[in-house]
Design a protein around this nucleic acid. Structure first.
Lengths: 133, 133
DNA sequence: TCGGACCCTCACATCGGTGTGAGGGTCAAC
DNA sequence: GTTGACCCTCACACCGATGTGAGGGTCCGA
């Protein structure tokens, strides 16, 4: 597919898709006329990239971790230098920290929302038609 | 405590602490001489803010969700307009999505690391002193 | 052969989080 | 009364993710 369709299917602007490619996050082949051509899997790839970007990872890191998510069954060990592995472990730990932080705060929001709803119900029951102070 | 100590204890630069204050994420009182003065709880608050920032939330959103995390037991219902609640629900869902994305990818990284380690062990066992292809 | 929808490559603009420095005050210690 | 560590308020600089627009090609259908 060409960039327009990919853009529509992923919600990412064309500009952004070119940027991702420039950053090495997605790849494209070129048609004879120079147009970019993407295969089906790129749709998922873009979603993944955008998810990670939205979760606070910079493109530099995403570029590093993507290759090892791609081919979960066909891992190329020569790719994995010791520094690379160290980076991955570090990044995994950072992600775990992020997950914990997000989870804690999300749960607090949920609690708050429930409390507000419970309070609103109590309010309605104890003073129907009136306001609580 | 003054800004220098807070900076040291949180790892956030003074500049950043002033920025957070400007963004309404932390508060300070002022000494007679104009110096900012923070109470103990601000240390945790800064950590929370930085965690959320690192997880991809913009200050605008953090400012909105912080008040409802602060006082989990002393909720002020008048604060909560319906739009506010809607925003919170939205944000909670976005956080859930982030958590899922991070978890999925982190687990994939973990799997990769384990596979590499297993491969390395197998390599070492089958061809000690040699290289695997 | 034209128009319009699509694509290309620059390249500059914007926005948010952060660094850095100028110019200047406060205060404790010598 | 000077020095040095701390604080203040600007204000500009930077970087990364993204928008926008200029200038120009390709291709399809009227």
């Amino acid at each position: 597919m060409r960039i327009g369709e990919l853009s529509e299917r992923t919600g990412a602007s064309r500009r952004l898709l070119r940027y991702y490619e420039e950053q090495g996050l997605i790849v494209s082949s070129r048609c004879a006329n120079g147009y970019r051509s993407y295969d089906e899997a790129t749709v998922d790839r873009v979603a993944q990239v955008r998810g990670l970007l939205d979760a606070g990872l910079p493109t530099r890191i995403i570029r590093q971790i993507l290759p090892c998510l791609d081919k979960p069954r066909a891992i190329h060990f020569p790719d994995a230098t010791p520094e690379m592995l160290a980076t991955l472990e570090e990044e995994r730990d950072r992600m775990t920290a992020r997950i914990r932080c997000l989870t804690r705060n999300r749960d607090a929001i949920s609690e708050y929302l429930e409390a507000v709803r419970a309070g609103a119900r109590a309010d309605a029951a104890s003073a129907p038609g009136g306001g609580g102070g």
